[in-house]
Design a protein around this nucleic acid. Structure first.
Length: 669
RNA sequence: GCGCCUGUAGCUCAGUUGGAUAGAGCGGCUGACUACGAAUCAGCAGGUCGGGAGUUCGAAUCUCUCCGGGCGCACCA
């Protein structure tokens, strides 16, 4: 494919530079010219070498081109502009190769662990969580396409303060017992089963209760609030301890909400392999093992003086020299073990990440938790099934966690590095992304009270604590409803079930594309108008291109596979790719040939948005081609075969790309 | 105060390791359905890439500085 052709040119030029100038150039910069008139591959290498060789760039470029001579796969090379070397591909040969190039990427490998979603199991998922899960799931698909073995983990903080808050709500605001909560969960579950609606589900109930409880902590007199906060921490303590009715209630709540989250994500095609829980990290004493290792390697030290007196602390990344030069205690150090002996969040995270890399010397117990059509999802437990898959011990990890947690993530990496696990530290990627916020207008439309100050902002952060945000299931429902109406208008002939299926495929496509078209570090200011759009740069636009291609094959009474088989027997197709009137066809093939390059770029930069962009561009080029060339009406038999092959390759590439984006390709829409 | 991110068309965003004429969608205005589906396509208008200085053959991209946004900097998670 295109990537290989680029690399081929790079190797050739490297060889020329060695032979002619005795230069060892590590990597030849290769780019795509801005215009097809400049060829398909170009390099400014001569411009870069001008100084070292004390020659004019154009002279160097000319010498390289002369030394290259004739090369198979290329029609020729030329010098342009200030000293670019432009290469023209052999179009006939390229098209032949692209048509044959099935499969994925095959550039990555190894055992990779991706952690994503990780929603506190105390409330319904909202749009911010959707961005996390969709980014993570898409990246997993990309890694798998490139040949890596990937385990997907969803970390469950079931003993944290957020779950404690909902427990406080049930116990002290609603006066419910463990049995009451159990009954409520059962009746909510029954309602979801019966009505197929998510609005009355248990996670929705918790959404409201969590907001109510958060407010309750601050809404009484000073003494009352102090008393309420005490209840909060007492509850948290009971959760961490386990084996008591409060912890039992927490377990019920967190498990029920977790099941809701898995159901929500499954609507979007998002699945997990393993659900490690904080309760097991605590009770299996992961921290004790990590603490020993951290002390032994000197990463942690006991602070005798200053504000952190009595704590075990570590130096923050970047502060090493400052810490060494400081005379007194390093007040900026990160506390890992508090003076009361309890461990902080970063400490627990270090232990967990040692496990991920197989460096802790301990493992979870495992039991089956959730069944997907194609595989099981396991959850951590104290002592579980005798036979289970092996999780952890990966050689690279990706943590899909929002950008605000950059500092604690850096601390964990720093700890690994300090312990001498530099290779693992280098393969630890904080896959960070910015939040999804609401535009003030959207917040007002949803009925939230928006302060004057917030009205002026470009966006307002969603907050589970305040109950402020758009719930994931509500958004999905709304998208499906809107799309169902659209599909019904266009296909009165289809039965309701089929229309519902198509509407769901398109709605999910629209949502996933919407979350993926923005690069990770751009804040998404959410607005229903944009998210509910099915035109322009959207998932449905790409799906529509696919439907059109399928219609061509249907009407032409053939299939993409048959067409490609025939094309393989054809003589040279190069003649159909020359000239200005065929520039759109060649541009389409060229884009179709970029699959491996795009996949590679996505992995190197941890950026799925490039794949989304690629799929859109491919669909766009096809739409253009579709309008310029009427395939089925083509009278030249050979040319018709070629045009059909063009559509077939486009279809194959679009379906592959959408698959990796987690978007289905409907038969009709 | 320190650190990280960020400022590109009216709006929302792309812009590969510094490279040729800065792109797309939406919105606006024109056109194109008896064609393989118009959820589409073509065209036009719209930019001192926040300001300034520097490095370079070459800067939206790198450095410095100023201005404007955002987010971190707990013995919370």
């Amino acid at each position: 494919m295109y990537l290989e052709q680029q690399e081929q040119l790079g190797d050739l030029i490297r060889g020329v530079l060695k032979q002619k100038f005795d230069l060892d150039v590590e990597s030849i910069p290769l780019e795509t010219p801005p215009d097809l008139n400049f060829g398909e591959v170009s390099t400014p290498i001569a411009l870069q070498l001008a100084r070292a060789l004390r020659k004019a760039p154009r002279v160097i470029a000319t010498e390289i081109v002369e030394a290259l001579g004739k090369v198979e796969g290329f029609v020729g090379f030329e010098v342009a502009g200030a000293g670019y070397i432009n290469a023209r591909l052999d179009r006939g040969a390229s098209v032949r190769a692209y048509a044959r190039a099935e499969g994925g990427g095959g550039l990555a490998g190894g055992h990779v662990l991706v952690e994503h979603t990780s929603i506190n199991p105390n409330k319904a998922a909202h749009i911010g969580h959707l961005r996390n899960a969709i980014l993570g799931d898409t990246f997993v698909r990309i890694l798998r396409a490139a040949g890596s073995k990937v385990d997907v983990q969803n970390y469950i903080d079931n003993t944290g303060v957020q779950v404690a808050d909902v427990v406080v709500g049930f116990e002290h605001l609603e006066g419910k017992s463990v049995d009451d909560v159990r009954a409520l969960i059962a009746s909510c579950e029954e309602q979801v089963q019966r009505d197929g609606r998510t609005a009355g589900a248990f996670d929705y109930h918790c959404w409201d209760l969590y907001a109510k409880t958060s407010q309750w902590y601050a809404s009484g007199t000073e003494e009352e609030n102090a008393e309420r906060k005490k209840k909060r921490y007492a509850t948290l303590h009971l959760l961490e301890e386990g084996n008591n009715p409060t912890a039992e209630m927490a377990e019920l709540i967190s498990t029920a909400v977790l099941r809701r989250h898995l159901a929500t994500m499954e609507r979007l095609g998002i699945e997990y392999d393993f659900l490690p829980r904080e309760s097991e990290i605590l009770h299996l004493k992961f921290w004790d093992a990590a603490f020993d290792l951290l002390k032994k390697t000197g990463v942690l030290y006991f602070e005798e003086n200053g504000k952190n007196k009595g704590c075990w602390v570590m130096t923050r990344p970047g502060d090493e020299t400052k810490a060494a030069e400081a005379e007194g205690p390093n007040e900026d150090a990160k506390v890992i073990v508090r003076s009361n002996g309890t461990v902080t969040y970063v400490g627990k995270d270090i232990a967990y990440h040692l496990w991920k890399f197989g460096l802790l010397g301990k493992d979870f117990g495992y039991k089956k938790f959730f069944e997907y059509p194609s595989h099981e999802c396991w959850i951590s437990t104290m002592s579980g099934a005798a036979e289970h898959p092996h999780f952890g011990g990966a050689n690279a990890i990706y943590n899909v966690i929002d950008a605000r947690q950059a500092d604690p993530q850096a601390n964990v990496i720093q700890a690994l590095r300090g312990m001498g696990h530099t290779e693992q530290a280098d393969r630890y990627t904080h896959f960070s992304y910015e939040m999804v916020a609401l535009t003030p207008r959207c917040a007002v439309d949803l009925g939230y009270a928006v302060s004057e100050e917030d009205q002026k902002k470009a966006y307002i952060e969603v907050s589970g604590r305040k109950g402020f945000g758009v719930k994931a299931d509500d958004l999905i429902d709304k998208l499906i409803a809107a799309e169902f109406e659209e599909v019904s208008k266009r296909h009165e002939d289809l039965d309701a079930e089929t229309r519902k299926k198509i509407a769901t495929q398109i709605a999910v496509g629209a949502l996933r594309y919407f979350m993926l078209k923005y690069t990770r570090n751009s804040v998404i200011a959410f607005d229903f108008k944009d998210a509910l759009s099915f035109e322009g740069e959207t998932g449905p636009y790409i799906q529509y291109a696919i439907v059109r291609i399928r219609n061509i094959f249907r009407k032409g009474a053939t299939t993409a596979d048959a067409v490609l088989d025939e094309f393989a027997q054809m003589a040279d197709a190069g003649k159909y790719l020359e000239g200005a009137e065929n520039a759109d066809i060649w541009a389409l093939w060229l884009a179709a040939g970029r699959r491996t390059q795009v996949l590679d770029q996505c992995i190197v930069t941890s950026e799925p948005a490039y794949l989304a962009k690629h799929a859109f561009q491919l669909a766009q080029l096809f739409s253009n081609f579709y309008h310029n060339h009427h395939i089925l009406a083509e009278t030249d038999g050979e040319k018709k075969k070629f045009l059909l092959a063009t559509a077939a390759v486009t279809l194959r590439e679009l379906v592959l790309a959408l698959n990796w984006l987690g978007i289905e390709s409907p038969e009709a829409m």
